[in-house]
């Protein structure tokens, strides 16, 4: 005698199928609003600096998570960085194979204590390496909508 009643096929037992009909509308927040507006309007990356802890947050934050200070010192940061780590994505969310593999990387932004996760472009997967120097490629201004996808991807420098 087994401990569980098993069914071999989904329709072997009576079921009722339901869903949770929700979607979300996320504000970018006080710091996020300015960060993404700077990208959209001026094509540049900004961070916030905690003078107490000597940290530059990218993405910028309204407060320092280490000392809880209110951060209001905004600094322009480079749009360049180094690949801290990366992966090559071969399947989509449903597990279907991608026509072209996509390279996803965590990029440490130069001169800061943070970075961004983003796609890499203009590079073959077998040429990517940890430590590679990359730069942000912003979309044309007319195409920017205020969001992380206003950066098309990062590409190798030099």
């Amino acid at each position: 005698m087994s401990l569980m009643y098993r069914i071999q096929h989904p329709r072997d037992a009576l079921v009722w199928e339901g869903e949770i009909p929700l979607f979300s509308r996320y504000t970018m927040g006080i710091a996020g609003e300015r960060f993404f507006r700077e990208i959209m309007e001026n094509g540049r990356l900004m961070g916030t600096r905690c003078p107490e802890c000597d940290l530059i947050y990218v993405p910028p934050r309204l407060y320092c998570e280490q000392c809880f200070a209110h951060l209001d010192e905004w600094v322009e940061v480079p749009s360049t960085g180094q690949v801290h780590t990366y992966t090559i994505v071969h399947a989509d969310l449903d597990g279907n194979p991608l026509e072209e593999p996509r390279i996803l990387a965590f990029i440490h932004i130069d001169g800061t204590d943070g970075g961004l996760v983003h796609y890499l472009g203009e590079v073959d997967p077998d040429q990517v390496c940890i430590g590679m120097c990359v730069e942000a490629v912003f979309k044309d201004k007319a195409e920017r909508k205020g969001g992380i996808l206003d950066i098309a991807y990062f590409r190798p420098v030099g």
């Binding site: 970018m28 006080i30 710091a31 996020g32 609003e33 309204l62 809880f68």
Partner: peptide
């Protein structure tokens, strides 16, 4: 609120 969840929490906590 325009603040994110994190920013709301920080305001109350601080």
């Amino acid at each position: 609120a325009q603040e994110t969840a994190k920013e709301l929490a920080w305001k109350a906590a601080s």
